[in-house]
Structure formats: structure tokens, C-alpha cells
Nucleic acid binder design. Structure first.
Lengths: 343, 343
DNA sequence: TATTAGCACTCGAAAATGGAGAGTGCTAAT
DNA sequence: ATTAGCACTCTCCATTTTCGAGTGCTAATA
């Protein structure tokens, strides 16, 4: 048994993986032999397969059903695809067509992107909206609702809007609110949200503020406004993935739907991948989410300048058409980055 | 055969329906006989059942499996529940606990409401966000993004916020934008969105406006801002409904997921029910959506003053615990109305 | 006259049966 | 080193069998 793969066993392994990606059926030695133009007999292929199985690249569901690639095999396969950037023209055009800004809010743009990723990949599309704290403060606005309730609107540099309803201790007048927002906008202009938070704390310490009830109020309001909201996650195309044969069974289906109804865990995983650059791939258990067993995740970050805005990607079965999906995710991320670019 | 139900057959019909709601299994004569404390023998029950079947209240899946209620039966059953308002205390408390405004935007509040409806009913929760045109204009704001892109924010009386990115013909300055929004806020204050639309058109006709490029621009911008966005629909708890035995089969499941991924049709149905007051119930084919076959919908509108804001409700199998769900939907709608009430 | 017991009958669901086919591993021949 | 040949294993599918629940009808009963 050889420890490193020979050229021949590499070829065979790839052939098995590609066939399995296509058919979702265990691959037999005969199939591979035919695929290679009979240059190798089924029996020889079988020998190689036995070796590959021993090395952990293949597994047999049962003694008389061909071989199935393991996660290790996919990892090997994906690593052999590095630098893959070629995207089919029609896919590139589709992406262009369906990424447009005008007339929509950012949320809709991202949702549409997610939908697009889903329909173009035939798996699920996922897009995580920009995390707020990384953004640059732009504008804050208070709108008086009934009673002591105030609607606060926070706009950041890249057009993300966050609004929140806040209950105040005392009733505030319309003119007060205008003054408050003027003051804050002046004070906080150009800072990132995390800087803004710090600044507000500092400001609240200041002597002179303590004696100006209005300003103190303003600061407290803005503090509440900034209290974290969960990042929004758009997952589209569940119906798509249910078409995949590996989920043709009721329990699996429920499992998936449940996994994506509460997005918390997934979000944690995605945020971990925020720090990396370029396309990232999690195969099966590599994500360390047991809910995600049997699923793979291909993601990339979208950025503006040197700020990471958010993440987008595709979720599918481990048996995923990586060679097609990786360029799609990569290209979409670039495209979205370009769209959200400022001036 | 009697045309109207006797007291006895009514009782039996109800017993069958309630048993079926509980078990999802065809109900046999023996079961009912026992349920009624043996006051009637299975044979007598069978006679009544045969009558009920002839009248269209029951159906037998096959000759040797008890009876199953038809839609007509559910309709009869639901109609016999009119005026039902009693809600269990713990459910009322749960609703109270999970409907709160502070610190969230309206969208989140509604999403949480939908989630709450789902978890309390064990079916799916659905909430349609306020339709924008019915609301009263409150505030409009323009924020300059990069290049010729402008972020417009529109706030209405009840705190709904709509934002949109718009591309303008020429680059506008920050001060221009402030002047524009001041002008518009003054002009449009207190009108409903549909009045606002009319007003903008009128204003654009005016002679003096044509010679003030800035104001003309402002009006055009606001016009674009108001161009309809789809109503938002929050559907939560798909995993819940997949637990129901009637959807234990792969095809059915896919059907459901698909049905709710594109919310268009459903929205049309819901908007039809906007005009009515109080709890509305659509049983099976009554919704005229073939996608919804085998599903029922219990909805109610939530209102502020005399304006209908939106709709919320529960979607489940026709075999739904109406007696429990109707009060829940009713109470939740009132609660949400109260929450969104202005002073 | 309304109700009930009894019984033959029907049908579906689940278990048992029995190839057919695909694929393997091993051995011996090339 | 490769391959042909063959016995063996296991799943999948269709068919059959059995079992039980439930009905409808008829005749007996209160």
C-alpha cells in the first residue's frame, strides 16, 4: 500500500468523485473502467479502489454496492481545484442581471442575491447582512411615535438602515428630538459604530453633559439604539435542496428545515469565516455543526475597500458540484462588493 | 334519510371530528361508542355514520377503515364554535410575554409574533406587515451615498420604515437634500400614503415648481421612493408543521415548502381577507389555492383605530385544533393591535 | 319501532418469500 | 503488473401471505 497517491489512483479517485457528484449512486469498478475508455479493466480498478478505501478516501455502503467518496476525498478533490476561477459565461450574465441596486433596500438586494445563488446553483443560497459594528456611522434620526415611544433610525455609510422602537422615561417634544439628532450627528460623524459606542460612553462622563438634560438624554437614546441587533441571514431555496436525492427521506428533510429555522448556530460558523479572505469551504463535519452533517458550505466575504461587510455562499450536500459552485460564489461575492462600493 | 341533523347525529359528528383532530386516524364506530360511555352500541353508531356519509359530512378512505371528516364537516364544526373566545390562561400569558415592542423594529416584532403563533399552536404562524399605502405619512429623509446614489427613508405614522436606494440623474449636495426633505415633510405631513401620491402628482403640474429645479427633483425623488414595495410576509414554524402526520410523506413535504417559498399567491388570499373583520377561517379548498389543499387558515386583522394594519394567523392541516386556535388568533390580533396603537 | 348482536366480507398494512442484478474479492492465468 | 473468471454477498423489487380493523346486512331483542 502506497502512502501517497500515484497518478493513476488520483485519476481514478477523481473519476469516482465526479461520477458520484453527478449520479449520487455508489460508483462501481465497471463504470470507472468504461469512463476511462477501457484503458483499465474493472479488476484493476477494483484493486486501486481497495487501496483508496484503506487510505480513507472511499467507503462502501455495503459489500455489493460500489464505493462512495468520504469527506477526506472531497477535501482532496476541492484542494486540487485551488485557483479555479473560470465561470461559465451564461452564469456570469445571470449574476449580473440579478444583482441590481436601484429601487430596493439593502435587505432586498441581499435577499435577491441569496435567491439568485440558490437558483443558479440548485442548492441553497445564503447571505449574511453586513454586521453593524464594523460600519461607519452616517446619520441618526429620531421620530416621535405616540406617548413616550420613539422610533430611532440609524444609517451607516454603506446604506444599511437599522430602526428600533424605544420607550423613554419622559415625553420628549418634536423640537427636542431634532436638536438631539443634530447634536449627535455632529458628534459622531465619520466614526465606526464601535468607535461611536466608545465615544458615547466618554461623552456621558463629561461634566458639562450632566447638567444638560437634553444632551444626556440624547446620548442615552443613542446608546439604546446601538445595542446589538442580530445580523440578518437570508437563506433561500430550501425547496431546491429537497430535490437532492440524499434528502429524499422524511427524517432528513425535517432535520434540514429545523436546522435552518434557527439560524443562530449557522451564524456563529459564518462569523468565524468572516476573518478569512476569498472562498472558504466547509465539507461535512468540518463545520462542527452536527445539524449540518452531510452538508457542505462554500462561502466568500464581500467587502468594501478593506472592510469586510458580510458573507455569502451556497449550502448543499457534501456531494456538491464544487467545480461549478466555487467560481459562482467567488464571482458573486466580487459582484456584490462592487455593487455596495461607495463612490 | 333526514336532511337536518338530529341532536344525536350532531353529537356523533362532533365526536368523530374531535377524535380525528386528536389522532389523525380514521375513526371507527367502536371508538365513538366507547367515547360516549357505551350509551350507544357500535352498530347504531354505524347507522348514523352511514347517514352522515350520505350527507357529505364523512368519507371513508377505503371500505374497512373508519370515517374521516370532510371539509363540510369541519365547516359545520367551526360554525358551531362561533362566539368562542375563551383562551387558556397560560396561553394568554405566553402571548403577553412574547409581544413586546421595545428595542426592536416593527419587522422584528411581527416576526417574533409569527414565531410565537407557531410555537403556541404547533402549526405555522403567519403575519403580514402593514400595507404601506394605507398608512399615514410621517417623515421622509434623504441620505447621500456614494456617487449619484441616494438612500431614501420613509417613515409612516405607525413606525413602519421603508428604505430604498435610488439613482439620480445629477449629483446632489448634502444641503440640497436637507432642503428637499424639509420641503417635502412640510408639504406632505399628515396625509395617507395614497393621498401623498396624488399630491405629488398635482404639485408636479404646478407652474412655479417647474422653474425650481430643486423642488421638482425632490418631488421626483419622493415619487420613486413611494413606488410600491411588496408587503412583507413572515411565515415561521415550518418545522412544526412537518411533524403533522398528514405531511409525513416526501412529496407532500416538498409541496408545502415550495408553496411557502413563494408567498405571492398566499398574499393575494390574505389581502382578500383584509376587508373582513374578526377571525376568518378558510378550510381546505375554500382558499381556492391548489397549493393549499389539505391546509386550513385561521386569520384575523390587526388594526389601529379604524385602519386595518395587517393580518396574522395560523396555517395548519384541515385537521386543525380549531377550538384552541381560534381564540389564540383572536387574542393575538387584539394584543398586536394594542401594541401598535398610537397614544 | 328503534336498537343491537352476530357474522360474512372487504380491504390495507405489514411481514415473509424469492429471484434478479450489481458489485466485490480472490485466485489463477496471461 | 494486469486481467479473466467465478463464487459469494447484499440490496432492491415484486409477489404472496397473513392479520386485523371495520363495515354492511340480517335477524333477534327491548
Amino acid at each position: 500500500m502506497q502512502e501517497y497517491l500515484t497518478e493513476r489512483s488520483r485519476k481514478i479517485l477523481e473519476a469516482i468523485i465526479e461520477d458520484y457528484i453527478l449520479t449520487a449512486e455508489p460508483v462501481g469498478s465497471r463504470t470507472i473502467s468504461r469512463r476511462q475508455g477501457q484503458s483499465l479493466s474493472p479488476a484493476s480498478v477494483r484493486n486501486v479502489m481497495a487501496d483508496l478505501e484503506e487510505m480513507g478516501f472511499l467507503a462502501s455502503p455495503h459489500p455489493s454496492a460500489g464505493r462512495v467518496p468520504t469527506e477526506k476525498a472531497y477535501r482532496f478533490y476541492v484542494d486540487s481545484l485551488v485557483g479555479l476561477r473560470r465561470i461559465a459565461r451564461e452564469e456570469r450574465e445571470e449574476i449580473h442581471k440579478r444583482c441590481s441596486l436601484t429601487g430596493k433596500d439593502i435587505g432586498e438586494v441581499l435577499k435577491e442575491t441569496s435567491r439568485m445563488l440558490s437558483s443558479i446553483s440548485h442548492y441553497m443560497g445564503i447571505v449574511v447582512a453586513p454586521r453593524f459594528t464594523a460600519n461607519v456611522f452616517r446619520h441618526m434620526e429620531f421620530v416621535k411615535l405616540g406617548g413616550r415611544r420613539i422610533l430611532t433610525i440609524l444609517v451607516s455609510q454603506n446604506g444599511t438602515v437599522q430602526n428600533k422602537i424605544i420607550e423613554t422615561d419622559e415625553e420628549l417634544q418634536f423640537t427636542d428630538l431634532t436638536r438631539m439628532s443634530n447634536y449627535l450627528n455632529d458628534l459622531l460623524k465619520g466614526l465606526t459604530i464601535s468607535q461611536v459606542k466608545k465615544r458615547i460612553l466618554e461623552e456621558l462622563q463629561e461634566e458639562k453633559i450632566r447638567y444638560d438634560a437634553l444632551l444626556a438624554n440624547a446620548l442615552k437614546l443613542s446608546q439604546q439604539t446601538l445595542e446589538g441587533t442580530d445580523a440578518e441571514v437570508f437563506i433561500e431555496g430550501q425547496a431546491n435542496i429537497l430535490e437532492q436525492p440524499e434528502f429524499a427521506d422524511v427524517e432528513k428533510m425535517k432535520e434540514i428545515i429545523r436546522a435552518f429555522e434557527e439560524k443562530g448556530q449557522l451564524l456563529a460558523l459564518l462569523e468565524r469565516s468572516m476573518v478569512a479572505e476569498g472562498v472558504q469551504i466547509f465539507i461535512g463535519s468540518e463545520s462542527h455543526l452536527n445539524r449540518m452533517s452531510g452538508m457542505s458550505l462554500v462561502t466568500s466575504t464581500y467587502v468594501t475597500g478593506k472592510n469586510t461587510l458580510g458573507i455569502l455562499g451556497v449550502i448543499g450536500p457534501t456531494r456538491m458540484g464544487y467545480a461549478k459552485i466555487i467560481p459562482i460564489v467567488d464571482y458573486t461575492a466580487r459582484q456584490v462588493s462592487r455593487l455596495l462600493e461607495l463612490e
